[in-house]
């Protein structure tokens, strides 16, 4: 399917105390099934807002949003979300946080033992087997983020929506999880939309990089197709001329044409 997720003429206006605030305007975007999209732009331009729209957590003020040909009227387990602020439930352990999602998606069809196995596997994938029975306040910020990723992956969603999932991680863990994510999406053919601040991450992971203009009333400034063969290897790419070209194009957009107004 060429247009798995369709976003047409979407506009998002927030009603604030100081009157209406136009966050997004004229957003048009088609995402094919199995495609990996990176959303990049300066802080506050509306990346999370756009992701929440695709997730169905908020509804657009104007325009249409479709997923698999059906209107996005609300969130659903076929669209897994990793929130920017991890959003774990503090009264549940890491295991229970993931189990809640697993149970919801597979609880009808599978036995308790299988559900538990799935939960263990999801946590093992992000390297948190040792922290399964800890509560969120007992683990580091990066670990919380990894539990959030495990929770989203455990649901085996058709579309994975990631809001700066590796933002709070150290470089090593980040690289490890990026590789894991590439492996998983290659295996499952899931469609991914990932918000990021990191140019290298965007080029390494995505098929297309969607670059957003500064807010307010932000829109899509440019879309860059990344034609690097998969599987990609970060070390090999370091010496790849095309990689550096893509990287340069994104940096040029961000730091020359969309200079941060305040900075």
């Amino acid at each position: 399917m060429d247009k798995y997720v369709q976003v047409e003429n979407v506009r998002m206006v927030f009603n604030t105390r100081k009157g209406p605030f136009v966050a997004l305007r004229d957003i048009n975007m088609n995402i094919a099934q199995g495609e990996f999209i990176a959303l990049i732009g300066h802080s506050g331009c509306g990346k999370s807002t756009l992701l929440n729209l695709v997730a169905g957590l908020t509804l657009p003020s104007d325009g249409t949003m479709l997923c698999a040909g059906r209107e996005i009227a609300g969130p659903g387990p076929e669209r897994g979300v990793v929130f920017q602020n991890h959003s774990l439930l503090p009264w549940l352990t890491c295991f229970e946080n993931v189990y809640l999602a697993v149970e919801r998606v597979f609880g009808q069809a599978e036995s308790k033992a299988t559900l538990k196995k799935r939960t263990h596997e999801a946590l093992a994938l992000v390297g948190l087997t040792h922290a399964e029975h800890k509560h969120p306040h007992e683990i580091s910020g990066g670990m919380k983020q990894r539990v959030g990723i495990a929770r989203a992956l455990s649901m085996q969603p058709k579309v994975l929506l990631l809001d700066e999932p590796f933002g709070a991680l150290d470089a090593l863990t980040r690289a490890h999880l990026q590789d894991e994510l590439m492996k998983i999406t290659a295996e499952t053919h899931s469609t991914v939309v990932m918000v990021t601040h990191d140019v290298d991450e965007a080029v390494l992971l995505s098929d297309r990089i969607v670059m957003m203009t500064n807010g307010p009333a932000a829109t899509i400034g440019e879309v860059l197709r990344v034609d690097l063969p998969r599987p990609r290897d970060r070390l090999a790419l370091a010496n790849d001329a095309r990689y550096h070209e893509y990287r340069g194009a994104v940096l040029d957009f961000l730091y020359r044409r969309q200079m941060r107004p305040a900075a």
């Binding site: 997730a55 969130p75 979300v81 439930l89 809640l100 999602a101 919801r104």
Partner: peptide
């Protein structure tokens, strides 16, 4: 709102929302 977003994304039933989110919070 974050907790309610989790409930929405996981599409939890009213009963699960009550026992796993509303009540503990």
């Amino acid at each position: 709102q974050d907790y309610m977003n989790v409930a929405k994304v996981l599409n939890l039933s009213e009963w699960k929302i009550f026992t796993k989110i509303l009540f503990p919070a």
